[in-house]
């Protein structure tokens, strides 16, 4: 495909589809019933966003959204590696949800100014839903950050792991220079990354979690941080962070290079579509 707009739309759609699918793995086993409903609903929202992007891509390629969403080989997907990772625990899930939805907010705000009108118009409905996703992500981040100890520890580990691969969300797209020059993409991926980092740095610092930005699940200076449960978190000599920090910044997804975790997602997502070609609901 030579139209760089298709690569942009597939990157947008694939991020939403794959993360929506991972989110949906919490259905039935989320921390409690109310959260199960809320998170499953967010998962559905994200997959709904994917359909919006695939429809737009379909207008350029002549393919229907199902064929675009489910009918490509693994190397044809353009999602960031971050979104294909398993959920691990609730701490990682909230950390990734937060990293992703701040990124989506930056992305949609950028695209709202696109000179390609259909793209700019598509952001409107998505941003309305995105407000709830951000509310949800920030509230959970805040609650886990304020303890109890175990929760804050899981969150810090999750943030270290998610932040390590978050740069993949802003990996430059193939043909990005052309998209920027044409005003389709009003802000290059690198500049969006800067905006994202400013927001995340400010908010995590406000929660006393700035050390996760340096890849450490614990404070290096041994400060005691009070938590809402009244426990004191000795941040100096705690156990080593359990989360393995991925190298490479989670890059490669925008070029179709994925982690071993993508195979599982792809098998589940596309299995029915491949087994019954042309089947309809």
């Amino acid at each position: 495909m030579t139209d760089p707009r298709v690569d942009l739309l597939l990157a947008l759609g694939d991020d939403e589809l794959v993360l929506g699918h991972r989110h949906a793995h919490w259905t039935g086993v989320a921390p409690h019933l109310e959260e199960d409903l809320a998170f499953s609903s967010i998962a559905q929202d994200e997959i709904g966003h994917a359909v919006v992007w695939y429809r737009l891509a379909g207008e350029l390629t002549g393919k229907d959204p199902d064929a675009l969403g489910l009918g490509r080989p693994p190397e044809g997907y353009r999602n960031a590696i971050l979104v294909e990772r398993p959920n691990r625990d609730w701490g990682y899930t909230v950390a990734r949800h937060y990293c992703y939805d701040i990124a989506e907010d930056v992305r949609l705000t950028t695209l709202a100014d696109s000179l390609w009108t259909p793209l700019a118009e598509a952001t409107g409905a998505l941003r309305r839903e995105e407000r709830y996703h951000l509310l949800h992500a920030r509230l959970w981040l805040d609650r886990l950050a304020h303890g109890p100890l175990d929760a804050r520890g899981h969150l810090a580990d999750g943030l270290v792991a998610a932040l390590a691969e978050a740069p993949g969300l802003f990996e430059p797209l193939p043909g990005e220079d052309e998209l920027v020059a044409d005003g389709v993409l009003p802000l290059a991926s690198a500049d969006q990354h800067t905006r994202w980092r400013d927001v995340v740095t400010a908010e995590l610092t406000a929660l006393g979690l700035e050390h996760v930005l340096d890849g450490s699940a614990h404070h290096s200076d041994g400060e005691f941080v009070p938590t809402s449960s009244g426990e004191l978190l000795d941040t100096g000599d705690g156990a080593a962070a359990a989360g393995a920090v991925a190298s490479g910044g989670g890059l490669g997804g925008r070029l179709g290079r994925h982690s071993e975790d993508f195979a599982e997602v792809w098998e589940e997502l596309t299995g029915t579509y491949r087994a019954y070609p042309g089947v309809r609901w």
Binding site: E34, E35, L37, A38, S41, I42, Y132, L135, H136, L139, R143
Partner: peptide
């Protein structure tokens, strides 16, 4: 209260 409002929406 904030969590109750957040979760009631989707419930």
């Amino acid at each position: 209260r904030e969590m109750a409002l957040l979760l009631a929406k989707e419930s």
